[in-house]
Design a protein around this nucleic acid. Structure first.
Length: 829
RNA sequence: GCGGCUCUGGCCCAAUUGGAAGAGGCGUCUGGCUUAGGACCAGAAGGUUCAGGGUUCGAGUCCCUGGAGCCGCACCA
């Protein structure tokens, strides 16, 4: 907290009767009684679903919440004013590790911490005056909610979209649980930042890869920031190429490889397989067994950070096996190296050092042959050449690629491979299936029973939810297996199929499963026949607007899209996409850096609200700049926001024209400004330019002040019109101030439903505009002209100007560009 | 390494999408009102639009090169 802030808080300042504490105390109960933001869902108006990312209940709201909620609320309130039937729900993403860790530390149940925090946040949200429909509130940790999370899991399971497999998986040693690919950021745990290691485990997966292409294709339907779409596109990582078979000496099955560069096949001088793949295990010869085992051990011990480092020297080991290059017939060695990944493509590659820098490095280090198959550009002195050029050294008795540029060479060789049955065109995706099991307590139990005779048996729907056993405190301490496993009387059950002894699955679901469908639960939170009422979903989905952070680009936002598509395929949902428009707010930082405990530069939202009031803080957030930019709290002036609100508020006490007066008799100049402001604000709000919209309201306030003090005066009807307009526009950002203004103006609450002001188009037309006359781009004169002057008239007028004639000084004109009514540019001869 | 975004008065940011560089706010300064004020009212100063080149009658805006900052991905064959 800066000194300035404390000063503001301590010294009472005369704000001309403006008292935000009193206003907050006065209006909150009034609104709660009126409950104006409940979605009607009765067909009386066009529906609009406004959604903001629900909150994780770790303590009270912070500055980031303050920003995202303020921005989201501007849009929601705008649509309420415009008369839409807005659904603006709120809930909590209340499963997850922080609650569990807190429970261990305090020796209590995670629910205690969770629900206490939810109440704290709910109180703060109410104080923050957000236009939520509280009747739809949900918590993902409620059994009534997670029963449907489990129900959905079972439907996925039935369709083969949820399955178990053994694999090397990401493991966070700190959180003692596995992580999805999406939760590993730069080799570190997305949640706690600890280095991630690998473990071989049998885990549950969702088959996201089945939807890779549709996740790409349907991006066309989304009005999302290009940045996010790009991230998803890269994450899905579609690449077109070919499978090619390489025969291996003494082995029945050929090795299949994926390559995007089949045109370089003639340059494949060795092969590399992933060391942790079954293939490596099978191929290694007895002579090389010792070296291979040693290498594999070293690879497993390395962390993801080490493995991902691209400047690390290549490592690998010869497996003793040889394959045959299908086009050259050459005998080529097969190596194992950890730069080849076991879970991408087939876990094996053909190495073409001449055209691939990784293969070049490897070949150089281990003395393997290098053959160029693309002619590098003149003067190329690098190593591997990855650019385009004519193929060279690429012919055998049956096929000749030499001289062809890469695309043609690719096509020809793949045709040949397909004819010979040696390969085929294919598409590969970088996206992996979503690993959803977690070895932790505070999540939805996976509703599967493992039976020695029947295998994986789903818990029957009528036995849902599978509730968590009552465990708390030290019992939850991470020890690498799920805490649920130690609840023996919970684990041991009769198999639903054969009634024999069986055990429950002891893992819980990734909390991203909970959040992949919460927006659907909102449409019918009381529904008992399924996760949501399909009819209600038809009415509300897809959500028109989603507001939240960009950190979810390839996490929640991708998972929610996947769930929506599966539910669509199940016939439960018309929508194929969950969120039509997306707005990512920036971060609130302080003095150039992210706020953090270690830096000690944190700003507490509650303190800010105490010092400046809810409205001033909301206004500061919205006015700071474009919503997707980061905002630096040190650059901003909540005191300035407060000053403006007070200035606006004082107008409402100055108005002398009675409520209901006919505005049309008011001062024309001020009326024009008012209507222009509303027209501009409408457009600015639709395109997320809230900061500019606030600036327009400030202009209107300034113009109104001037009209009162030195213009037509406080009794003019135009002044009332302007101030009522200010109140309504301001109600999106500063609801308490706006409501108080509305009352001062003689109206009943609530200004939030006053209705968006109607623009009179006649008041938008200007009587005259200033036309700039340039000579060779330099301004020489200005003319007041009619807005609908013709090009010809304007040109004549401009040429007749004294200033122009003087500047031309007898020179003729070579060219005259006329852009009526704003500009004439004369190019002299 | 690859890709994306950003760069405009001291500061946060506008600029009708190629047409007068400045809307709004903060800060500074001057005057008024005031016992006084950080409150209120009126007004003012402040610029090579990151640098260089190009396209154009005209560039903050489009293109190229470079710089700075932020972000994403990073052995994906």
């Amino acid at each position: 907290m800066s000194e300035q802030v404390e000063h503001e808080a301590d010294a009472p300042i005369d704000r001309g009767g403006y008292d935000f504490h009193a206003m907050q105390a006065k209006w909150r109960p009034v609104w709660e009684k009126l409950d104006p933001f409940k979605a009607r869902d009765d067909g009386s108006a066009e529906r609009r679903y406004a959604l903001t990312m629900f909150s994780y209940p770790s303590g009270d709201l912070h500055m980031g919440h303050g920003e995202v909620f303020a921005l989201h609320d501007v849009l929601a309130r705008f649509w309420f004013q415009q008369g839409y039937d807005v659904m603006n729900p709120i809930g909590w993403d209340s499963f997850g590790l922080p609650a569990e860790n807190a429970a261990i530390k305090r020796n209590e149940h995670p629910a205690t911490y969770t629900y206490a925090n939810i109440e704290t946040q709910a109180e703060s949200i109410r104080r923050y005056a957000l236009s939520f429909d509280w009747s739809r509130r949900l918590h993902t940790s409620d059994p009534e909610y997670y029963r449907w999370t489990q129900w959905l899991f079972l439907r996925f399971f039935e369709r083969g979209l949820a399955y178990r497999k053994a694999s090397y998986v990401n493991w966070c040693p700190n959180d003692q649980t596995v992580l999805a690919n999406e939760q590993v950021v730069q080799g570190r745990c997305e949640r706690c930042g600890h280095e991630v290691t690998k473990r071989e485990l049998t885990q549950w997966y969702f088959k996201t890869t089945d939807y890779a292409q549709r996740l790409l294709d349907d991006m066309d339907l989304l009005q999302w920031p290009e940045e996010i779409l790009l991230q998803q596109r890269n994450w899905i990582g579609r690449s077109e190429g070919a499978f090619t078979d390489f025969r291996v000496e003494g082995r029945e099955e050929p090795i299949k490889v994926f390559t995007t560069r089949p045109d370089t096949l003639f340059g494949a001088t060795f092969m590399v397989v992933a060391p942790d793949s079954k293939l490596a295990e099978e191929l290694v010869t007895p002579e090389q067994r010792g070296a291979f085992d040693e290498y594999l051990t070293a690879v497993k011990a390395s962390t993801e950070i080490e493995r991902l480092s691209t400047d690390r020297e290549k490592t690998g080991v010869f497996l003793g096996a040889y394959a045959t290059n299908p086009v050259t017939g050459e005998r080529i060695p097969v190596w194992a190296a950890d730069y080849v990944l076991s879970d991408y493509g087939t876990g094996a590659i053909m190495a073409v050092p001449g055209q691939d820098s990784r293969d070049w490095e490897f070949a150089e280090k281990f003395g393997l042959p290098i053959v160029r198959t693309v002619q590098p550009e003149e003067g190329f002195d690098g190593k591997a050449y990855t650019g385009d050029g004519p193929a060279i050294n690429s012919a055998n008795a049956e096929v000749d690629l030499n001289g062809l540029p890469i695309p043609e060479a690719k096509a020809r060789i793949v045709d040949w491979l397909q004819d010979k049955g040696l390969g085929e065109r294919t598409i590969n995706y970088r996206l992996r299936d979503w690993l959803l099991s977690r070895q932790r307590y505070w999540g939805a139990p996976i509703p599967i029973i493992h039976c020695p005779s029947c295998g994986e048996v789903p818990v029957p729907d009528d036995q849902l939810p599978v509730e968590l056993p009552d465990q708390r405190g030290a019992a939850l301490a991470p020890r690498g297996i799920s805490p649920l496993a130690s609840a023996r009387d919970w684990v041991d059950v009769a198999c639903p199929k054969c009634d024999g002894p069986a055990e429950r699955d002891t893992d819980t679901m990734d909390t991203f499963v909970d959040s992949s469908w919460y927006f659907l639960r909102y449409v019918s939170p009381e529904y008992t026949e399924g996760p949501f009422d399909p009819e209600a979903a038809r009415r509300w989905m897809p959500a028109y607007q989603y507001v939240g952070g960009k950190e979810h680009a390839v996490l929640h936002l991708l998972y929610a899209r996947f769930f929506t598509k599966v539910l669509h395929d199940m016939g439960m949902l018309d929508a194929v996409e969950p969120f039509t428009r997306l707005l990512n707010q920036g971060q609130v930082i302080n003095e150039g850096k992210a706020m953090s405990k270690s830096l000690g530069n944190g700003v507490n939202l509650g303190d800010q609200l105490d010092s400046f009031g809810v409205d001033a803080i909301r206004l500061t957030m919205v006015f700071a700049g474009p919503p997707d930019d980061d905002i630096d709290w040190a650059d901003l002036s909540p005191g300035g926001s407060l000053k403006f609100l007070q200035r606006a508020w004082r107008l409402s006490g100055a108005v002398e024209a009675p409520a209901g007066v006919d505005f049309s008799t008011g001062d024309l100049a001020l009326r024009k400004i008012t209507h222009r402001t509303v027209a501009d604000a409408t457009e600015l709000l639709e395109s997320y330019r809230f900061n500019v919209m606030v600036a327009r309201v400030m202009e209107l306030v300034n113009a109104t002040r001037k009209a009162i003090d030195s213009g037509p005066g406080a009794a003019d009807p135009a002044v009332r019109e302007a101030v009522e307009t200010v109140a309504i526009l301001l109600s999106l950002v500063a609801p308490y101030t706006a409501e108080d203004m509305w009352e001062n103006l003689g109206h009943e609450p609530t200004v939030a439903k006053a209705g968006w002001p109607k623009v009179d188009p006649a008041l938008l037309v200007q009587d005259s505009v200033t036309c700039v006359v340039q000579i060779a781009g330099k301004v020489k004169d200005r003319l007041e002209v009619s807005p609908d002057i013709t090009d010809a008239e304007l040109e004549q007028l401009a040429l007749a100007s004294d200033a122009v004639q003087k500047a031309l000084d007898g020179r003729g004109t070579r060219k005259v560009i006329v852009r009526a009514p704003k500009l004439v540019n004369i190019v002299p001869a």
